[in-house]
């Protein structure tokens, strides 16, 4: 076992992990943050995306110990005092989820995109979504959700 200290959704966390555990499993099984989904476990689908120091990463292939000293943001960390983040609300309003399994991963890559680039072009949006698969929506509503979030941010932030 090894000691892992990191910040998760703004709170400092220290726990013992196996050296070959992945961040996705630590978040889900040890910390109960089951909003992060596991689709493929091989880097292909993006369902397990979380942010580490603001960068989107695939937590299913990310050795947990790599997060030592870093700040991890999961889908649970987006909601503030019961209020959805602008990206989450846009996904709801654009009906961008069907089964919803891919949704946390998509929301997190969009969050990472808009935090750095609040006015992305269509090409930049597509580039940001390229590492995430959705088997239900056909992606159109997801892209509409991103556009909606962009518009709302430009109009002053809130949904």
């Amino acid at each position: 076992m090894a000691l892992l200290s990191m910040t998760v959704n703004g709170k400092p966390v220290s726990l013992e992990v196996e050296p070959d555990e992945f961040l996705a499993d630590v978040l889900r099984d040890r910390l109960g943050l089951i909003g992060t989904k596991i689709g493929c476990r091989e880097g292909e689908c993006g369902a397990c995306t979380v942010l580490v120091d603001g960068d989107a990463i695939l937590s299913c292939i990310h050795p947990a110990l790599k997060a030592e000293g870093r700040s991890v943001l999961t889908i649970e960390g987006l909601t503030r005092e019961g209020k959805l983040d602008v990206v989450q609300q846009a996904f709801v309003d654009a009906a961008a989820a069907q089964c919803g399994y891919c949704t946390p991963g998509f929301v997190m890559v969009v969050k990472a995109l808009l935090d750095r680039n609040p006015h992305p072009t269509v090409a930049e949006i597509e580039e940001a979504l390229a590492g995430n698969l959705c088997r239900c929506t056909g992606y159109y509503q997801i892209k509409e959700a991103v556009q909606l979030a962009v518009e709302r941010l430009a109009a002053g932030g809130g949904p």
Partner: peptide
């Protein structure tokens, strides 16, 4: 480098 994987893979 811009066409490798998706953003998550490029970040690492």
């Amino acid at each position: 480098c811009r066409v490798i994987g998706g953003p998550q893979v490029r970040n690492l």
